[in-house]
Nucleic acid binder design. Structure first.
Lengths: 192, 192
DNA sequence: GTCTATAAGATGATAGAC
DNA sequence: GTCTATCATCTTATAGAC
């Protein structure tokens, strides 16, 4: 049984992802990542020949893991209100852990730096989120716990825009409480 | 009457601001700006010795001009609904003109790249916006055109988070219509 | 698979001529 | 005020030893 690449490779992706979420793609280098891990730049190039390869790998994994997380929420929640609350909590954790942003909102800000395939994957992530929220809202409408005046699709997009903006503003303010109060009040507004 | 620095200086700031709103602070260089204007890098260093000086100048001017714009909206609008609509239109124009983001949401994404004075100015911009929206909502509550269930302050923060996120997602989707429909539906939700 | 060494180019910044 | 020339440093990336 051969020793797996995975240890180093995952460590590179973990560190790269962390730094991108914190600082942005254009603010980090192979040297930053290598130094943090305690390896050399050339080792990163072995796994990810170019920086675009690296960010694509990180992005693809992130999207996949995020979908798993949403799946988990579906399984452990008893109703749509709880699902939505856990959704907001998930975005809160990113912020609470070293003041990071969602990988895709950071990359969406730096959108022009990326080729079309990567842009499509970023948009895919947003669509994943919207689709999931839409289903949750549909469920909430059926059970009578959510506002049925505007379409579920549009409601899900508003929530998605809100959560990305809330994360950005809360980090900028340096106060996690800022995020909590905003979410609390938005949830009020989603009720019928 | 001496020839004014202002021509070149303003041109540098205009170009720098444009490029930051499009690509981000860490994605642009003195060379990019110089090339666009048709001057040399050294000329930019004459007006703005360091890159931080440049971004601080751009940011300060942006915040001032934005406050003027909000003042203008106050003067030409007949009620709070119109004010809010024009507010969203202003953010829409940024997006419509070469798919740029708000300077401060871009800089908020790159927050860790900046020293404390610049971070404070970014937050000042967000506070300016929140204060203005809060007043508009107060006015709307008095005239009965806006939802009075949650505090005006919190409602203004939700709107601020929303508009920043909406801009980000709409640009990423490449479809301005995405922004319009979101705004339209959010406005519905703000009514009593 | 990880390293050293190195390339080729870009970056922010400065000195000094005009 | 704008330029040329130059700097030290950092960047992504590759070749080749171990």
């Amino acid at each position: 049984m051969k020793k797996n690449n995975n240890d180093t490779m995952q460590l590179i992706m973990d560190t790269g992802q962390f730094l991108i979420q914190e600082r942005g793609y254009n603010a980090i280098s192979y040297a930053d990542i290598a130094e943090r891990i305690g390896i050399k730049k050339a080792s990163i190039h072995y796994y990810f020949p170019s920086k675009q390869d690296l960010v694509q790998g990180i992005l693809h994994r992130y999207r996949k893991e995020f979908l798993n997380e949403l799946d988990q929420i579906d399984q452990i929640s008893i109703n749509s209100e709880e699902k939505l609350f856990r959704f907001f909590q998930h975005y809160r954790e990113t912020l609470a852990n070293d003041a990071k942003l969602c990988l895709c909102s950071m990359m969406a800000a730096e959108l022009v730096s990326f080729p079309i395939e990567i842009r499509n994957e970023i948009n895919g992530f947003f669509r994943d989120n919207e689709n999931w929220i839409e289903k949750v809202i549909e469920q909430g409408k059926e059970s009578g716990s959510m506002d049925y005046q505007i379409s579920s699709r549009e409601q899900s997009r508003i929530i998605m825009a809100f959560v990305q903006g809330a994360q950005l503003l809360a980090r900028s303010s340096g106060d996690l409480h800022y995020y909590d109060v905003m979410v609390e009040n938005l949830i009020k507004k989603l009720k019928p």
